[in-house]
Amino acid sequence: MRRSSSLFFLFLAFFCDWARASMGMAELPAAPGDGPVTVFYPSADAARPTQRARFTLDLAVQGAPVPGNGRLVIVSHGSGGAPWVHADIARSLVEAGFVVAMPEHKADNYKDDSDPGPDSWTMRPAEVSRAIDAVARDPRFAPMLRLDKVGMYGMSAGGHTALSLAGGRWSPAAFARHCEANLVDDFQSCVGLITRLTGGPLDGIRKWAALFVIRHRFGDDVAPREHTDPRIAAIVAGVPSSADFDMASLADPRVPLGLITAGQDRWLIPRFHSDRVLAACLPRCELIADMPTGGHGALLSPPPPELSGLIGDMLDDPPGFDRQNVLPDVNTKTTAFFRKHLLP
């Protein structure tokens, strides 16, 4: 039955306008207190090379939308992230008929990265809900969408958002406890890109300063963070930040949950993050794709160009990672997951 449904979907797509459409792009204005929401969608207008930040993308900017499959997927970017590094997964989803919306997370985006970490993680799930609201208010997209079953995809800090929306509970104090116990082994997860351990004489000061700040800011905040949205019906978490979650809360996700992992992730070491989630939720979640040779930036596609220093070390592809062959397959599997759980 499932195979015949898939064949019917492909047959239908052949005759639909969106099957031959380009990828449109529009920006919904920011609501009070929020950043803008970038929307990608099937468009009848021709795409043209378009410069966005350091990227050139083929987009039909403000192109006329055409009806797709009637479903929306929200994408939550990583720390300091932007919509443009998720353009390839957006294109895969748009080619399958989805509308894709990406909120700009406050004080943790490429324009303003002043407050990443637990403060941002606390706000992000509600920002996802308000992004759905923003699309629902827009007269171009609202008539084409059924918002009773929305998909959600998040990568890195966006993966943390995804796990929250899947029913996961976490607290800033749990983040502090994790860093107290595993500071050296999971240093970048605890401090981000502010500094790194070098093996030199200043490492002791770096570790002391990191723990002082983490304990002072987060150690006493034990209130569990929870946020769900009944409209969200399927979730994908890519290389998620997750060491601060109560894993019991992820043992039975409230909606279908898929994971994407990267074996060479040195920013969010798998044994503290994605491996723990999989151990807690399997078989009630699904491993969509494992990239044994992929690093933390493997899902950034197109990848940020000309990175250097610590951010380059964390996000550039490790030797041996076959991006050209691996990423299209991961995007296809991710799109298939949303098609399976969101379409009739």
Rank of each mutant, 00 (worst) to 15 (best):
L7Q: 11
L10G: 13
C16D: 13
C16V: 15
D17Y: 11
A21Q: 08
A21K: 02
S22Y: 10
M23I: 14
P29L: 10
A30N: 09
P32R: 10
P36W: 11
P42S: 12
A46M: 10
P49I: 12
A53D: 11
P65M: 04
P65E: 03
G70D: 03
G70Q: 02
L72H: 03
S79C: 09
P83N: 03
A90P: 02
F98C: 04
V99G: 03
A101V: 06
E104Q: 05
N109D: 09
N109R: 05
K111I: 05
P118Q: 06
S120Y: 05
W121L: 10
T122L: 10
E127Y: 13
V128D: 06
R130Q: 14
A134T: 13
V135L: 13
A136N: 11
R137D: 15
R140D: 14
F141V: 11
F141C: 10
P143K: 06
M144L: 15
M144T: 07
L145D: 02
G151V: 03
Y153D: 02
M155R: 06
H160V: 10
T161M: 13
A162M: 01
A166Y: 07
A166N: 04
A166W: 05
R169E: 15
S171G: 13
S171E: 13
P172Y: 12
A173M: 13
A173V: 12
A174L: 12
F175R: 11
R177P: 06
N182A: 11
C190I: 01
L197W: 00
T198D: 01
G200P: 08
L202F: 06
L211E: 01
V213F: 04
V222S: 04
H227L: 05
P230D: 04
R231V: 07
I235E: 01
I235A: 00
V236I: 14
V236H: 00
V239K: 02
S241V: 14
S242N: 06
A248W: 02
P256C: 07
D265G: 01
F272A: 11
H273C: 01
P283D: 14
E286C: 08
A289C: 09
M291N: 11
G297K: 01
P302D: 12
L307T: 08
G309R: 09
D313T: 03
D313W: 00
D313I: 01
P318F: 01
P319I: 05
P319H: 00
Q324V: 13
L327H: 11
L327R: 11
T334E: 09
A336L: 15
F338G: 00
L342S: 02
